[in-house]
Amino acid sequence: MPKVTIDGHTIEVAEGTTILNAARQIGGDLVPPAMCYYSKLDVSGGKCRTCLVEVTKGSEKDPRPMPKLVASCSTPVMDGMEVGNKSSAKVMDARKGVVEFLLINHPLDCPICDQAGECDLQNLSYEHGASGSRYEEDKRTFEKIDIGPNIQLHMTRCILCYRCVNTVDQITDSRVHGVLNRGDHSEIGTYIHNSIENDFSGNVIDVCPVGALTDKTFRFKSRVWFLNPMNAHCKCDKCSGEAVVWMFGDEIYRVTGRKDQYGEVKDFICNTCRFDSKDLAKWTIEGPRHIERGSIIGQGHYELKPEDNIKEIG
């Protein structure tokens, strides 16, 4: 099994593991950010270039460093490889550049965007972005498009990570959702304005790292940090039925998959659970969802652990 050292931490991983996944096995803040890679998809990654790392030693056999920064999400580790992420000034510089590129045509409309608070691009910019913009020109804009009755595409916000494209490729047999045009005119589309006829199409919303694909049953209902995410399950014959319900008082405002710390869902949930199950009676609530400290969603969110042993009053 190959051994790889990332920012000075060494780990032994299975043959074929990518640098990014090796870093995730170590954990902590040496894990490169990933805006396009999604481990739950068969095909993804390589596109956004936020996960670039420096390979200072190729392997035990061939210790030469790699000439360019490499995408850690799609580069497998070799035995003896040494990788710099946070410790490499080159990487930090390139990543700052990538974030800037991702933002020049992004509308930065976080105040009116439903994704705000749980947006990967927001987090990335917070960590690696600059406080001002050097881009003076007009940004590219698109009209909003409905993809079926429940999903809205706001292409202006899209960073072309291809996650939704790969998701739909995976759940459908034919190509129904893809990229039209090229370069910075590229747009996601279901040629033309079609809905995606599939019970799992709603997952494109969960995989979208920004607010380009949003849930129309939830749009503009509430800021996510005013809601309480609860782990819940229901009996469903299409999917596992294991989801997160986002509640305000007794009301369910929206239903999503269970995302981990890297923003990846545990299972794809079906459209019925996601869009048509806002009735609390349908769900068995398991308890509050764990929210990372420091996440804005944590505000007003109470997590009780059994050892807290709090008794109901009154």
């Binding site: 390589g46 270039r49 590129f101 045509n105 045009n181 370069g183």
Partner: peptide, 18 residues
């Protein structure tokens, strides 16, 4: 190059236009 970038990766897609 701006016109011909395929648009997959962010540095080329956004950088050429910029």
């Amino acid at each position: 190059y701006h016109h011909e970038s395929c648009g997959q990766c962010s540095p080329c897609r956004e950088g050429t236009g910029w």
